[in-house]
Nucleic acid binder design. Structure first.
Lengths: 359, 359
DNA sequence: CTGAAAGCGCTTACAG
DNA sequence: CTGAAAGCGCTTACAG
């Protein structure tokens, strides 16, 4: 005998049995009608009676019981190291939710805080709950090793890639972004005095917030820039390093040092918007105007870019599209495993114009 | 007979039955040992055998089955209209996850997009999954009507309040924030030329992004400001309205109009950081320096505040603390229902100094 | 066309 | 001290 009385849980939640009783049919019949199965033929009258009974009782099937029976939970998890950490997460989550929404699927939000042991515990917990799939996300675009437990469920990598070839991943098209930035400057007439701001100092592969990871974004953006400039018969005038993190202070001191060194850039390509804002400040301190004296372009497309004057022209991270695609790929199980690269659109501001010398 | 073979689901997930077989005991014994129940006395030897068998088989209990049996799922949901919409969500979510993390509870992330019918469907879906509780959040601080379905589970309101007295809610202490802002200016020596920037135009109760809601934040911040100034024997010199949304452009045009009208403010209290940045720009256009000519203080404590020079002094929304407290209250079921107000700390920048006249 | 029964993997009173 | 059995609320082959 079971000690729990009905009243102790969910106050009289209606069960399938009660619907069957009210409709005067078997429980199987109710299940078939409500799940819209047509392989059994039930009389139209029976169907109607069942539906009415369910409606009148306000019946809603217990999803836990359904999951236990079918092994399908109608849930998906987003496991990452970024959730509570960065504001970029938001747009990605929005994209994920958009896709899931149509599929009537709920989302578990899980933050591993970058700790492998915590991550393992959480993955285990999700698998124990029969999640239908997992989106495994990284705060920064990088190469990861797929956790063993992840393979217990269908999964898609978001903003990261693995070296395993059987893996589906979604990342921004960083090479294309580099090309876009360089092309924007070339079109405006810049050519020989274009500097890149944001490489790591010699011997360093990542700033404080990189945990020692080598960011794919940096390598690939530079590759795109170099290729576009080479195709135009020119090259970067140089690469300025940023000590520490890619923030406003880092950008300011890097560009201040650059200007002090006697370099006379016509344009700066900044590794992200914060560094771009730092560049604005250093240029202002040097009495140089944007874009009249120096053009500035950056990457990210963050709210920072539109908070300054002139608005910073930026090649935008397609967070929402990334999230949306990752969720879609997780749901469409027939997609062949491969890396999907999502284009990064140019978000034009007012920080790029023709170089001074050619006016 | 059941058609599904073992191999079709979770590839040989180990069950309690298998642990019992390997340990040579009954399933009950395994359950008792693994759940650490001491009301039955099992021999130390039995316990050890069970634990070893579980360990060797890599046993992890099926949470779905557990939930069906016990009615407790070890999950909580955050239902709100803000999730994918605003970057403030992040810190709140971080706070929520911090609290949940220790309680070994997983989080469902649900975005109602502000649509009642979608919200109802999602709430139903959560209840069908036996969530242990729901945090119901609002993007902007406001008064809401509690959805009927919400009462099917323990719940806490986050960043909103209801008129029902049996409700637990967590909101920022907006009145205190107003006091803090006014006091900061008073301490610096400002007195009779303090303006507030950000009331709605006459007859309007909300900008485009307010969906017609009256934001509690505005009313309460003003109340705090008025009280603090009154206590010092003075009052606001005036309140400048912002047409449309509280963004940079809105702040800029509002302050430009204010200055054009001949007002000579010694300090501006801006309704949020974006409006504060707009104020910076309008002041600059008018040839006025911050803080030498005009001091500026705002509310939010967003990344925008630290991206400008001088950094904008701001009374910060305690997003993370709000989320953390909401989750704690949901888990600690004995707390009496009431409204909890979380203090808003001052985030000092360089935008407040003594007024020009008293130098 | 319909219904009785097994089973998903657990927990827990109850009888030994 | 231990084990057999009921039951959580569903789905679904199978027999009528």
């Amino acid at each position: 005998m079971d000690g729990r009385s009905r009243g102790q849980r969910g106050e009289g939640r209606v069960t399938l049995t009660e619907v069957a009783e009210r409709a005067g049919v078997s429980r199987s019949a109710v299940s078939f009608v409500l799940n819209g199965r047509t392989d059994l033929r039930l009389s139209a009258d029976t169907s109607a009676r069942v539906r009415r009974a369910a409606e009148e009782l306000g019946y809603s099937p217990n999803a836990t019981a359904k999951t236990l029976r079918t092994g399908k939970s109608g849930t998906v998890a987003l496991v990452s190291d970024f959730i509570g950490t960065t504001s970029v997460a938001n747009s990605m989550v929005r994209g994920v939710l958009e896709s899931l929404h149509d599929a009537d699927t709920l989302l578990y939000m899980v933050d591993s805080q970058g700790e492998p042991s915590l991550e393992e515990r959480l993955l285990r917990s999700l698998i124990d709950r029969d999640v239908d799939g997992i989106i495994y996300g990284s705060m920064f675009t990088r190469t990861i090793a797929v956790p063993t437990l992840l393979r217990n469920a269908p999964f898609v990598l978001l903003n990261c890639v693995s070296e395993d070839s059987d893996t589906t991943a979604v990342i921004p098209d960083e090479v294309g972004a580099g090309t876009t930035a360089a092309t924007a400057l070339l079109s405006a007439g810049h050519r020989d005095r274009i500097w890149f701001v944001g490489v790591f100092p010699p011997g360093i592969t990542g700033g404080g917030s990189w945990h020692g990871w080598s960011p794919l974004a940096l390598t690939e953006r530079l590759r795109g820039i170099d290729a576009a400039l080479a195709a135009a018969g020119t090259a970067l005038a140089g690469r300025a390093s940023v000590d520490g993190d890619w923030d406003v202070a880092g950008g300011r001191s890097s560009v201040a040092k650059l200007l002090a060194s006697g370099a006379a850039p016509s344009a700066l390509i900044c590794v992200n918007d914060a560094v771009g804002l730092g560049a604005y400040q250093a240029l202002q301190d040097a009495g140089l105007r944007v874009p009249d004296d120096v053009s500035v372009i950056a990457f990210d497309g963050s709210p920072l870019a539109t908070a300054v004057r002139p608005a910073l022209t930026s090649v935008a991270l397609p967070h929402e599209a990334l999230g949306r695609l990752a969720a879609q790929l997780l749901l469409d199980r027939e997609a062949a495993p491969r890396i999907h690269r999502v284009p990064m659109p140019l978000a034009p501001g007012g920080s790029v114009s023709a170089p001074r010398s050619v006016r």
